[in-house]
Computed example of a mutant assay.
Amino acid sequence: MQNQSNLIIENNVLNWEYKFGIKFSMPSNCIIYFEKENNIALNKYIRSNYDELRDKFSKHNFNLIFAPLLTNTINDLDKVVEYFLPQLTYYEIPQKVKNQYGELMFAKGLNKGIDDFGAVFPEEEFTPSSYNYSDILKLIDYKGNFNSGFILYNNVVGVSDAFYEKNSEIDFSSFFKEFEDYLAEISNLEYDAMIANIPPIVDLTEKLDEEAAQIVNDLKEKLAALTDSGQLLFIVPILKDLLDKQTEKIDFKSISKITIDKQNKILLPYFKKEVELSHLTKSVYFLFLKHPEGINLKELENFKKELLTIYISVSNQLDHDKMVKSIDDVVNLETKAIYTHLSRIKSAFYKIMDASHASHYIISGNGEENRKVLFNTNAIDWYVYDPIDDYEL
């Protein structure tokens, strides 16, 4: 425990391990106010100066979260949860989270409305209503001794006894000034460490198409908004409670098997998802699924016969010459058509799940080198494709 004139800092008293997906871990820039006992004076000060404090902290890239003032919600919360944790779809957990979260936010909004009567009819003895932080403290397994304080990613900041002794009127200005200085100090240290450890960015597959990129960006923005607003703090305990009831059923390290049905639909039953592709792009994907060892694109011409066979079995086209021309374009690297199809495959998966899950299914690789699907193709339930090896071009 470190002591400064106005601050007390506890280290190693938090456990942020949620055990169900890194995408739902609280980021390092959050500062969360909490209390075990109602600290009326500190509560009043934060309420009265909330916007100013948020602005000051944000200059050092920190986001102040004060639970009593959080009442917003988003309509497609279930889509956000489903996208980043697709394993939960099978158990209808995203929708359950949305329903319980909506009920919680409604109750909070109602309480806040009642509490705000004090602003309309001010009374000398008016005090802000208390808030139950037990779910948050239980979630992060707080092991410190503070009755109230501010949770950062790796420590907790509290108000020192020395501060209370010096401030009989309980003006927290000097406390927050020192708090801000402390944030500036650790912000600079963390930024230097981050710059020193940034790995090079390598895009192993083709870029997403415009529609997929928009979907991905939209969902990432919604998750960021949930995090920045502090609403993630309310979602995670609900999510954890629901998952605790399904502990034996859900394996968060697992991925869905692939089922290809008689209509050539690509299904991920564990995620309750269908991967939608055009007939030609689907045929390219099937070719790579048939070759788990990988295919060097420079040798794609050698797979022309097999790819045409697959395309005939998948497509509903009747124009044979047109189909042959399409396959010729795909296997000819000069047309760059193959890269378009690889991009479309990547986009199709990225539209329905986060990259951490999609990476198992897309055709990975770079340039003209060996391309392959990382998924264990022996786990595919394939009901339709039966190659016609003696088909003559």
Rank of each mutant, 00 (worst) to 15 (best):
M1A: 09
E10T: 02
N15E: 05
G21M: 10
M26H: 10
N29M: 04
N43W: 10
N49M: 03
Y50S: 01
L53P: 00
L53G: 01
R54E: 10
S58R: 06
F62S: 06
N63Q: 12
P68K: 11
L70R: 13
K79V: 08
V80C: 05
E82S: 10
Q95H: 11
Y101N: 08
L104A: 10
F106Y: 13
L110H: 13
I114S: 09
F117K: 08
G118E: 10
G118K: 11
E124W: 12
F126S: 13
T127Y: 12
P128W: 15
Y131R: 04
N132V: 05
S134I: 08
I136M: 09
I136A: 03
L139C: 13
G144M: 12
N155H: 11
S160P: 04
F163L: 12
E169L: 03
E178G: 04
E180R: 00
L189M: 08
D192L: 08
M194P: 00
V202R: 08
K207T: 08
A212D: 05
D218I: 03
T227M: 15
Q231L: 11
Q231R: 13
L232T: 06
I235S: 04
I235C: 00
V236S: 02
P237K: 10
K240T: 10
K240I: 08
E248C: 00
F252G: 01
S254V: 00
K262S: 07
K265F: 09
I266Q: 02
F271E: 01
K272Q: 09
E276I: 15
V284C: 08
L287S: 02
L287R: 00
H291S: 08
K298W: 07
L300K: 04
F303I: 03
K305N: 01
E306A: 02
V314T: 02
D319V: 06
D321Y: 08
S326M: 10
D328K: 09
D329C: 10
V330P: 01
V331Q: 00
L342A: 06
R344G: 05
K346M: 04
A348F: 04
I352T: 07
D354W: 12
I363Y: 06
I363W: 09
I363F: 06
G367N: 15
E368P: 09
N376M: 07
D381V: 13
V384S: 15
